[in-house]
Amino acid sequence: MSPSPASETGWMTLAVLIGLFAGGILAVQPSANGMLGKHMHHPLHASLYSFGSGFVIVLLISLFCGILPPRMSIAPSQLPFWAWIGGAIGVVMVTTSLVLVPRVGSLPWFAAVMTGQTLLAMMIDHYGWLGNPRMPVTPLRMLGVTLLILGVLAIVLAKRGAEAGDLSPGEANELSPSVAVEEISKE
């Protein structure tokens, strides 16, 4: 028996609301990690503290709920290799954001991350990769992704324009893409 349209709408609404909340609190994470990273001797030290605090919280919740030790319903060797890489992806996200957010700001970083996530998620859904249900790309989905890409470009250009407004005309010219290309080609 398939779920009713009303229950699917309810689940979708719940998922969007929780996603908005999770995305909102995720906006704080790179800034917090960036601040930590500024005051550590190496960015990986900040990653260690960030993941360490998360580990302690999950451990305490698991102890409180009485769900230790972790158990699996199948043998670990039966899982596909990619089932084990979530933590590694987290390391990439945390470490790159704690290095880059203090340099470029939260908005350009998150706009780029969300666009990358959306592009790959669209491909994952379209092809049904990684155990996901197959959901073909539609023109409306393509429009949404195109708008995200345009949004990233607008955010980056706005940041560049704001930075150029704080500079003298000569310094602003040095930031232009054509000057950067000329400098690279001279080398």
Rank of each mutant, 00 (worst) to 15 (best):
P5R: 09
W11E: 06
M12Q: 10
A15S: 06
I18T: 14
I18D: 00
I18E: 00
I18H: 10
G19N: 08
F21L: 13
A22P: 12
G23T: 11
G23K: 13
G24T: 00
G24C: 02
G24M: 00
I25K: 12
A27D: 05
Q29S: 03
P30N: 01
P30Q: 03
P30W: 09
A32F: 14
A32V: 14
A32D: 02
N33S: 01
M35D: 04
M35K: 13
L36G: 00
G37E: 04
K38V: 05
P43D: 00
H45N: 09
A46R: 05
Y49E: 00
Y49P: 02
S50C: 08
S50M: 09
F51D: 01
S53E: 02
G54S: 04
F55W: 14
F55A: 01
F55R: 06
I57K: 06
L59F: 15
L59P: 11
I61Y: 11
L63I: 10
F64Q: 10
F64A: 09
G66Y: 03
I67Q: 08
L68G: 00
P69R: 07
P70W: 07
M72L: 11
I74E: 05
A75S: 03
A75Q: 05
S77Q: 10
Q78H: 09
L79H: 11
P80H: 06
P80V: 01
W82E: 02
W82N: 04
W84H: 10
I89D: 01
V91K: 12
M93T: 15
S97Y: 08
L100W: 09
V104K: 08
G105M: 02
G105H: 04
S106W: 13
W109Y: 15
W109A: 05
F110P: 09
F110L: 14
T115G: 06
T115A: 11
G116M: 08
G116C: 07
G116F: 11
L120E: 00
A121F: 06
M122D: 01
M122A: 09
M123C: 13
D125P: 12
W129M: 07
L130C: 06
P133N: 00
M135F: 15
P136H: 04
V137C: 09
T138D: 02
P139A: 03
L140W: 12
R141V: 04
M142G: 06
L143V: 10
L143K: 04
V145M: 10
V145N: 03
T146R: 07
G151N: 07
G151P: 14
V152R: 11
L153E: 01
A154I: 04
I155K: 08
V156Q: 09
V156M: 13
K159W: 05
K159R: 12
R160W: 10
A162G: 11
E163P: 14
E163R: 15
G165S: 12
D166C: 11
G170E: 14
E171I: 12
A172L: 12
N173F: 15
L175K: 15
S176E: 13
S176H: 14
S176R: 15
P177G: 06
P177T: 01
A180D: 04
A180W: 14
E182W: 15
E182T: 13
I184E: 05
S185P: 13
